[in-house]
Structure formats: structure tokens, C-alpha cells
């Protein structure tokens, strides 16, 4: 599956934030995500992980470099084309960002309402999505009545609503306990296998990468220090940052 146009192709991506001083959050990043990948991006706090995801999600404008989704440069898209592209990319966040005044069902319906889909179609599709994420019994609950894991399931269903080709996840399990984390990761794996959605997952936990990723990039201080296939890349780690993330001391052999 590793030939053909990558679903995400990034070349020379840099992002500098200018506040009272300049912060180089991303430096010259190259990245290929192939269709069907579950691509992990791992790094420590402040490494630039969220910035990378936000650039792909069009929430941040790169300082330089290009991002192509299925061969199309995303920085050139405007209006309808831009909205169409956004619908190809689902995004889920650590903080869920659900609409608190809407029920679970209406949260999932939100992207469909934006497209002015008919009532019947929205009802049918939300039923389907509730089923996929296992929340059919919570359809009429409000987010404030759900656990963290359930909220993330709603966010995943909502991200799937417009049939995206890619799901970008920014630390989707970092606020969850280990059992819930496992079930959310399982759900993402199922979605990847059954619906053919490519997944990019950002994390600072090596366990997440080990559990579901087929490829991984290690990011440190805005740079990719290592990139490759799982599990090979972690078998004889030489890079200091990778070793640190793996929990190997410098003195270990």
C-alpha cells in the first residue's frame, strides 16, 4: 500500500510564531502519510506536535513549505473547495470540544446540518454513527452527562459524519485512564480497517504508538529526528530523544 499518491504529503514545512520573540515551532518537516496508515507523531511537550496537526487541519498557516492532500496543495484552496477539503479531514482533540447545549445526536448531526442534509438523511446517518461508536443508548444525553471516553466517542462520530478520508487526532486519549484509552484506540483501529480512513495520531505516550501505529515520526524541538515503520524503528533506537521517549536511560545498552 505504500505506492501511489500519499494522502498527506508535506515538504519543507516550517512554522514560526512571532510574539515578543520568534518561536520556531516546526523546522523543515517532510512527511508522507499513505492511504490506510495509522501514523503516529510522538514528541515531548512543546515539540511542535499540535502545530503540525493544526497546519494540516488548516487552523494555522505555515510560514513556508507545502502540504498536499491527495496531491492538492491545500494553501491554494478557497471558498467551496476549502470547505470541501475540510470535510475530507476529520479532527479530534484532547478537549473534545463538543457543543454543550446539544444532545449527543445533535452533536453528531452538526456537520451534516452544515451541509443542509435532509432530516431523514441526518437521522439515518446519526443512527449509523452512534452504532459505530457504541453510543446508541446515549443519543439523547448531553455532553455534560458523559464520561471522558464517551465524549471522545461522540467527537469521533462527529468527525466521521462527513465521510472523511483522514482523521487527525491531537492527544485523543491523554485525559483518559488506561482502560478507556485502550477502547478508544481500538475504535480508531476499527475505523481505519473497516472504513478505510487514514489516521494521524499525535501523542507523547509511546504506548499509544505501540498499540496502533504502523508508522511513526519522532519530533523534537520542531524537527523530525526519526521516522519509519513500526515496530522496527523502536527495536534498536539510537537517537537520544527516541530513547528518552522509550524510557531507556542514556546508560542502558
Amino acid at each position: 500500500m505504500s505506492e501511489g499518491t500519499p494522502i498527506i504529503q508535506i515538504r519543507g514545512l516550517s512554522k514560526t510564531f512571532v510574539t515578543d520573540h520568534e518561536i520556531m515551532a516546526l523546522r523543515n518537516i517532510d512527511l508522507d502519510v499513505q492511504k490506510g496508515d495509522i501514523f503516529g507523531i510522538i514528541g515531548m511537550s512543546g515539540a511542535g506536535k499540535s502545530t503540525l496537526l493544526r497546519c494540516i487541519a488548516l487552523l494555522e498557516t505555515p510560514t513556508s513549505g507545502t502540504i498536499e492532500i491527495e496531491g492538492r496543495d491545500i494553501s491554494t484552496l478557497r471558498g467551496r473547495d476549502l470547505i470541501a477539503l475540510r470535510k475530507q479531514i476529520g479532527v479530534i482533540f484532547q478537549g473534545y470540544h463538543l457543543l454543550m447545549q446539544r444532545t449527543v445526536r445533535r452533536n453528531i448531526a452538526f456537520p451534516l446540518e452544515l451541509e443542509h442534509k435532509s432530516k431523514e438523511e441526518i437521522a439515518r446517518r446519526t443512527d449509523e454513527l452512534l452504532e459505530i461508536v457504541g453510543l446508541s443508548d446515549k443519543a439523547n444525553a448531553y455532553p455534560s452527562q458523559l464520561s471522558g471516553g464517551q465524549k471522545q466517542r461522540v467527537a469521533i462520530a462527529r468527525a466521521l459524519a462527513s465521510n472523511p478520508k483522514i482523521i487527525l487526532c491531537d492527544e485523543p486519549t491523554s485525559a483518559l485512564d488506561s482502560v478507556t484509552t485502550k477502547s478508544i484506540l481500538q475504535l480508531l483501529t476499527d475505523i481505519n480497517r473497516n472504513l478505510g480512513v487514514s489516521v494521524m495520531i499525535i501523542t507523547h505516550e509511546i504506548g499509544v504508538v505501540r498499540a496502533i501505529c504502523n508508522k511513526v515520526a519522532v519530533i523534537n524541538d520542531g524537527l523530525f529526528v526519526e521516522q519509519g515503520e513500526m515496530p522496527g524503528i523502536f527495536q534498536k533506537p539510537t537517537n537520544a530523544v527516541t530513547r528518552l521517549l522509550l524510557g531507556l536511560g542514556e546508560e542502558d545498552e
Binding site: 470540544h97 452544515l114 459524519a161
Partner: peptide, 21 residues
């Protein structure tokens, strides 16, 4: 929560839709 507005943005919401929905 600004994150909610960003999330709507990623779903392809227009400014108008963000204000009213």
C-alpha cells in the same frame, strides 16, 4: 470555549454558521 469554534471550523462551518449555530 474557542476550541469549540475551531472544531466547527474544521468541519467546514462558515463564519455565518459559526455565529448562528
Amino acid at each position: 470555549d474557542l476550541g469549540m469554534i475551531e472544531a466547527a471550523r474544521t468541519m467546514g462551518a462558515t463564519d455565518w454558521q459559526i455565529i448562528f449555530r
